[in-house]
């Protein structure tokens, strides 16, 4: 079973992502911010990481660049959740090493479709 780590500081979004992905048959763990996400990623073996951008303690962009420095996550797909309509956040994420993005607001179908794009 593919394992996914979802990182978001909003409990409602986190629960929605968790529930949706579990329903879709993935094994999912979650983290509340970048620091938590990095620790969980290091201790587990995930096939995909989905992270929010704006979070306390460590934001999504820093999380992505730190993950890319870990040999285990060098090539792992990392998707960012973003509400930013401007291109600058997407670019910042890309240059930190993000694979792609899911634009908020998103519905469960969109989430699953995007996840399936990278977990084939």
């Amino acid at each position: 079973m593919k394992r996914i780590l979802a990182v978001d500081d909003s409990v409602s979004i986190r629960e929605m992502v968790l529930f949706t992905l579990k329903q879709a048959g993935y094994e999912v763990d979650s983290a509340v911010d970048g620091v938590d996400g990095l620790a969980k990623a290091k201790s587990g073996n995930f096939d995909l990481i989905i992270s929010d951008i704006n979070m306390p303690r460590m934001d999504g962009i820093s999380l992505i660049s730190q993950l890319r420095n870990e040999s285990a996550y060098k090539f792992t797909p990392i998707l960012m959740l973003t509400t930013e309509s401007g291109a600058d956040k997407k670019m910042a994420g890309k240059s930190a090493g993000a694979t792609g993005w899911i634009v908020k607001p998103f519905n469960p179908e969109k989430l699953i479709a995007t996840v399936q794009k990278v977990l084939r």
């Binding site: 500081d9 909003s10 409602s12 979004i13 929605m16 704006n54 979070m55 306390p56 509400t83 908020k104 607001p105 998103f106 519905n107």
Partner: peptide, 16 residues
Amino acid sequence: TIFRVAHSIKGGAGTF
């Protein structure tokens, strides 16, 4: 911190 709250409410409101 204030920004993040507004941002979370906006994001959640859209999603839900």
